[in-house]
Design a protein around this nucleic acid. Structure first.
Length: 224
DNA sequence: TGCCAGGCCGGGT
DNA sequence: ACCCGGCATGGC
C-alpha cells in the first residue's frame, strides 16, 4: 500500500471509530500536572484504579511538584496504592518532580517550550518514563503533536494489515506521523479511540470471531 | 479462579 | 536487538 493510500486508510479508520465510539474526552479540563501524574500512574493499570489514586493525591493536596517533593515516599506510596505497583510508582513520581524542579523550576510552560525532540530525550532519561509515557505527557499535557503508541495500537495495526517493517515503538509511531497531519487534537482523539476499540478486540487472533468489532470497523475501512 | 489493565526497569543473552 | 522476571491492585 502506497503512502497516500495508507494515509487515507488511517483517516477513514479514525472517522469510523469516531462515529462508533464518539469523542473520548481524555483528560479534558485537567491541569497539565495532573495529566502527567495520571500518565505515570496509568502504566499497566486500569484507569478506574488510577482515578482513586489521583483522588487520594487531590485530597492530600499533593497534586503539585513541590507538594510531591515534600511528601515522604512512604506516604506517597499509600496514596497511590489503589493503582498498583505503588512503591515503583511513588518512586517514579518522585523522580519526575525532582527533575522538573531542577531543570525547569517546576514550570511546565517552560518545559513544554523546549524543542520537542530534545525534550522527549530528556524525559526518557527520567526514571519511570518510557516512550509511551513520554509521548502521553507531550501530547496530552503539552498539546504537542506526537502520536502515542500502546499495546492496543500495535495489536490493531497488526491485525488490519498495516504492520510496519520493524517491531519498535518508533516504527509504529512513524506509520501515523508520516501519514497524517501533525495535529495534536487529531492525535489525542485518535489514540483514545484506538484504546476504546482495543478494549473490544480479543487479544489473541481467533478465526471467524464474530464479536470482534475490529473487523467491522477497520477491515471495512481498508477495503472501502 | 484466573486473566487483564492506556508500561518500565534491570539484567541476561 | 530482543527476552524475561519483577512490580501489585481491583474488576469482571
Amino acid at each position: 500500500m502506497g503512502k497516500r493510500e495508507t494515509g487515507k486508510s488511517l483517516i477513514l479508520i479514525y472517522t469510523r471509530l469516531l462515529a462508533a465510539y464518539g469523542p473520548q474526552h481524555w483528560w479534558p479540563g485537567d491541569r497539565p500536572f495532573e495529566i502527567i501524574a495520571g500518565a505515570i500512574l496509568t502504566q499497566s493499570a486500569a484507569w478506574s484504579n488510577v482515578e482513586k489514586a489521583i483522588n487520594n493525591l487531590k485530597k492530600a493536596g499533593a497534586l503539585s511538584s513541590q507538594a510531591l517533593r515534600d511528601l515522604p515516599i512512604s506516604k506517597l506510596a499509600v496514596l497511590v496504592h489503589p493503582c498498583g505497583y505503588y512503591n515503583a510508582k511513588a518512586a517514579k513520581l518522585k523522580a519526575f518532580v525532582k527533575w522538573l524542579g531542577e531543570h525547569f523550576g517546576d514550570n511546565l510552560d517552560r518545559m513544554f517550550a523546549e524543542d520537542t525532540v530534545p525534550l522527549r530525550e530528556a524525559l526518557l532519561k527520567v526514571f519511570g518514563i518510557g516512550e509511551e509515557t513520554a509521548d502521553s505527557i507531550l501530547l496530552y499535557a503539552g498539546n504537542i503533536p506526537v502520536f502515542v503508541i500502546d499495546a492496543y495500537t500495535r495489536r490493531i495495526i497488526d491485525r488490519i494489515g498495516l504492520k510496519p517493517k520493524g517491531n519498535r515503538y518508533a516504527d509504529y509511531q512513524l506509520l501515523f506521523m508520516s501519514n497524517l497531519p501533525l495535529d495534536s487534537r487529531l492525535f489525542n482523539e485518535y489514540h483514545a479511540l484506538l484504546v476504546a476499540l482495543g478494549k473490544n478486540v480479543c487479544r489473541k487472533v481467533r478465526p471467524r470471531c464474530k464479536e470482534c468489532c475490529l473487523r467491522e470497523i477497520c477491515r471495512q475501512s481498508i477495503r472501502s
